[in-house]
């Protein structure tokens, strides 16, 4: 009994803090989720009806027409196809390339490990900038080319450092015993080191995949002329500017086809684009949390 009373005797300030903190967290969650929820509501509501406004928590006139329209738009389908392709191919290539590089610079026996590391770390701080890079890619024939999504961004010094930090933590004895059995670097990398690096590989793969899924600037800059190489985000961006350019709702009313408006179509496209990410990321949490904490460790 006595214990209970002492526990209850927390100060007023303490109680106020707990209350305000809880309130703040709820507010934070609402501000984070509400815009996404509202987009979902608009995407499921009759487009012309949405223009009346006042649509917040629940659709007034349910419809799947917006999604139907999106799924019949050729440019969005091409964009989705290219985006999936670049995400899969680009992630695998980047992961392989960064992992091998990290393996090389984490070998204690390698004479030039410091120089090679430095060679890449410098690229984190200095780069040629937009125009020289653009002209170079043009010269290399990487414009209007799918490979521009894959090749140039393959190596990232940051991801390399994250993997390297992890590999350095693997005891040398693993490699030494394999060497005694006559294993070369290919075997040590693929059979000994890589299986131990699965968590950090997952982290880097996740970062790369999100980057590929969300990128649009390279599509606009290098592949604008080829509509077969467009990406989902770039098409989404074009939808956005078409919506904002129609400043008044009267105008968008005129452009509305039946019950579908540019705004409602964009909402549906936005929902479809974020769907894979929203569904997957909660399950991959532990990977990016460890990845970030490793990456944050001082170089």
């Amino acid at each position: 009994m006595k214990r209970a009373t002492t526990r209850k005797k927390t100060s007023v300030g303490e109680k106020v803090f707990v209350f305000l903190n809880g309130f703040f967290m709820i507010l934070f969650v609402i501000i984070t989720l509400y815009p996404v929820w509202n987009t979902l509501v608009i995407s499921l509501n009759n487009g012309t009806d949405s223009l009346r406004g006042g649509l917040y928590l629940w659709p007034r006139m349910w419809t799947l027409k917006n999604f139907n329209t999106v799924l019949h738009k050729k440019n969005l389908l091409v964009g989705a196809y290219v985006t999936v392709a670049r995400t899969i191919i680009g992630t695998l290539m980047a992961l392989g390339a960064n992992a091998i590089l990290a393996y090389i610079v984490s070998r204690k026996r390698f004479l030039f490990k410091r120089q090679l590391s430095l060679f890449w770390v410098i690229t984190m701080y200095v780069n040629g900038g937009l125009i020289p890079t653009f002209l170079l890619f043009k010269g290399l024939g990487l414009t209007n080319n799918f490979l521009v999504y894959i090749i140039p961004g393959m190596i990232s010094a940051f991801y390399m450092l994250v993997i390297r930090t992890f590999m350095v933590g693997i005891p040398d004895s693993f490699e030494e015993s394999a060497q005694l059995d006559g294993a070369g670097d290919v075997v040590i990398f693929t059979k000994i080191i890589s299986p131990l690096c699965k968590p950090v590989y997952a982290t880097v793969a996740l970062f790369c995949a999100v980057g590929h899924w969300n990128s649009w600037f390279d599509a606009m800059l290098y592949n604008r002329m080829n509509s077969n190489l467009t990406t989902l985000q770039y098409e989404l961006m074009k939808l956005l500017s078409s919506v904002t350019n129609q400043s008044t709702s009267v105008e968008s009313m005129k452009n509305a086809v039946g019950t579908v408006t540019p705004t409602s179509v964009r909402a549906a496209a936005t929902i479809l684009t974020m769907l894979p990410i929203v569904c997957l990321y909660p399950f991959l949490q532990r990977y990016f949390v460890t990845g970030l904490t490793i990456g944050g460790v001082k170089e």
């Binding site: 969300n214 956005l240 974020m274």
Partner: peptide, 18 residues
């Protein structure tokens, strides 16, 4: 709290416009 980080700027600016 992580969710918005994974959305592209295209989506975020679109939402902001709305």
């Amino acid at each position: 709290s992580y969710l918005p980080h994974f959305l592209s700027w295209i989506i975020v600016t679109g939402i902001l416009h709305d």
